[in-house]
Design a protein around this nucleic acid. Sequence first.
DNA 1: AAAAAAATTTAGAGTAAGCTAATAATTTTT
DNA 2: AAAAATTATTAGCTTACTCTAAATTTTTTT
Lengths: 231, 231
Amino acid sequence: MNTKANQKRQTPSRAWEDYLKIIYKLESSENLGKGVQTKELAQRLAVSQASVTNMLKKLAEEQYIDYQPYYGVSLTEAGRLVAMKMLRNHRVLETYLVARLGYSWDEVDEEAETLEHFLSDKLVERMWHDLGQPTHDPHGSPIPSIDGQIEPVQLQSLTEITLQTPVRLKWIKNRSPEELRYLASIGLHINAQIVIKNQAPFQGPLLIEVDDQHFHALDYRMALALFVEAE
Amino acid sequence: MNTKANQKRQTPSRAWEDYLKIIYKLESSENLGKGVQTKELAQRLAVSQASVTNMLKKLAEEQYIDYQPYYGVSLTEAGRLVAMKMLRNHRVLETYLVARLGYSWDEVDEEAETLEHFLSDKLVERMWHDLGQPTHDPHGSPIPSIDGQIEPVQLQSLTEITLQTPVRLKWIKNRSPEELRYLASIGLHINAQIVIKNQAPFQGPLLIEVDDQHFHALDYRMALALFVEAE
DNA sequence: AAAAAAATTTAGAGTAAGCTAATAATTTTT
DNA sequence: AAAAATTATTAGCTTACTCTAAATTTTTTT
Ligand SMILES: [Mn+2]
Ligand SMILES: [Mn+2]
Ligand SMILES: [Mn+2]
Ligand SMILES: [Mn+2]
């Protein structure tokens, strides 16, 4: 009856869930195959690095992550499943708010960031079925399946597209509400058609035509966050 | 620049909100005009009496309650408004889950008990408008208005009704999911017609007829929680 | 009015999650 | 290969909320 070894893995708290979700996001958008850094986590979670170190020890203890002190962390399968559940909760809710309660795509993230931790499985599944089992959220992010599978994103950034080739907007990655409102105001919603007419040098703005209608100058950094598919 | 006096009142935490909500419920269902007791709060919140005392000091400090040590507590106006917001959030959500997501009345309380603390005003108002601005939840409890007004319940308990007088069921107070399912199974939903055919002595069961269809024996303690209105 | 019972508060401690400052390890630059 | 810069960890505190056990006050019973 060893008190430590026998202990059940606890239900992850809100804090743990946010850590695991961010670790997942950093892991999958990471250029290299290295572990996720303490510093990056601290930034994304808006807590001190010391707090992150402290929490990583607990997450490792409960086997949600593999932790090599000084060399970063990666998710275990248990940790990945927690992250997937958060992404599913978050994205199903966002989709529901837009489709059923008149939210616009810039309003949903704030609501979902908190509620993702408190929605029951039952509620998420009922929303998802009511919506017709959607596969993507209002920003084009894939919704993990209930058993934790997620479609790999196979899209190109708008910055990688050659001039004059019409493409369709499929995913907007991580933009602020203000930026999302701006994008909507120039017609850049999911599935909009985009043709790059010109690209200024030195990572300068792109001249784009949207849905064969209007021309706009698009900042290079913004273009980096727009992911598209050949028509 | 006194650190204490200048301090803003903090946004109430989930724990504070639950305390204030329960204080409200005990205050308004209390027989006498005395303060709400520490012991009752401890029972309803499932925490120790010492924890309650500790929390009451903080709530009094922030002026959400009036607290007379040893003689119980009552809500201030600020405290009452917090309680009303929780009841509104809780009851609007319950109504939404039943009307829009196929929940039955015995499933909604569990979901609402947690989510009431995390729903934004925007979301609650959108659900409420989408539902057509309902005034009562699926159990018949009144939904406070957005500015904290609540309709006083003016109903009689089924135990106070004379034999053979048809009445309509308007409110089921505080029943467990199991009891709610049982009530539904014998046709006792909101607005069902009830006629008491007989009442056994010594607070024994009531013989009732439901919607002119079926007869049932109803436990006296259950009847105490059913509130009705003359037809 | 005293004794007994019940309710309440106080004392002391624990856990979760955060912080700053100090220290240590790693990585980058020279 | 040193020095400098960066990143990470440790040490020591803090706050919010909870607990049990002991002490105190109020209420009820005798
Ligand atoms: Mn989001
Ligand atoms: Mn979150
Ligand atoms: Mn309820
Ligand atoms: Mn609650």
